[in-house]
Design a protein around this nucleic acid. Structure first.
Lengths: 148, 148
DNA sequence: GGTGAAACGTAGGCCGT
DNA sequence: ACGGCCTACGTTTCACC
């Protein structure tokens, strides 16, 4: 992976649907040479795929919170049960297993605070082994490279 | 936004570079009708853009941590100074302003723990008004819809 | 929402360096 | 091993029904 590959990735991060000819021009390469590089990045797994980015507000996900969850049981089955519940909950967009004072850090997205409250009581509150729940409501994101 | 639009977005989330003809077939529409819908979603801002997804490991970002930061000063200038520092730090991929026991929640990505330690001491440690730093190292992410 | 046709882009073989 | 050229084929896009 040289400087040209980095440049290609930078452009594809800006616009993942740029045509190969336009991309080639931006990185000062012929279309065929550019395409071969992109295909090699895809083949070796550096490029995992491409996806659309949608507006959270217009998708009914204008409200976001980070939630720290502590479990009372540290057994494999307790963890698997919790992770399964999170994977089927549509509001949970991220579930990270972290090392520290609690076990899980979630990112939860919903339409508004009242919908979040519903998730909090009806989904998290009904989970067994959930020992502690602490919510941090996102008031703003001065930087968010994953969503841009 | 009807059911077909939802279906279009679902497919574009799976593969943001799918050709319009293939997308049209998947949502049972003619290519032109499908294209008009996609263009309308782009025009109204539901679709913000498209981007490539890269492998964190191969990009030298196999290590991730969430960092809670408390500031000792809650003035506008103290916040702006901190946010500016985060926006220029390449390791910081997310910086959220949250409501709770601390002010900021960061997602930091680096090659490994030693590189993270360098960030911790040389970037966070040198910031004025930073009062408390608590790191949560990500051991795994059973769900991560933002990155997939 | 569908059809058709022109403009455009993709992708792979081939050759030179 | 890598870049540029050429070309057949597929896709995008738009006026029109």
């Amino acid at each position: 992976m040289d400087a040209i590959d980095q440049k290609i990735l930078r452009e594809l991060r800006r616009d993942g649907r740029i045509s190969n000819v336009a991309l080639a021009e931006r990185v000062s390469l012929s279309p065929s040479a550019c395409l071969r590089r992109v295909q090699e990045l895809e083949r070796t797994g550096v490029i995992r795929g491409y996806r659309v980015v949608t507006s959270p507000e217009q998708m009914g996900r204008g409200f976001a919170a980070y939630v720290m969850v502590g479990l009372s049981s540290h057994t494999k089955s307790a963890q698997e049960g919790f992770e399964r519940a999170m994977s089927v909950a549509p509001e949970v967009v991220e579930c990270h297993n972290v090392a520290g004072a609690f076990e899980y850090l979630l990112r939860v997205e919903s339409a508004d605070l009242s919908e979040y409250k519903r998730f909090h009581t009806e989904v998290l509150g009904t989970q067994s082994h959930v020992h502690a729940i602490t919510s941090y409501i996102v008031m703003g994101s001065p930087k968010d490279e994953r969503a841009t």
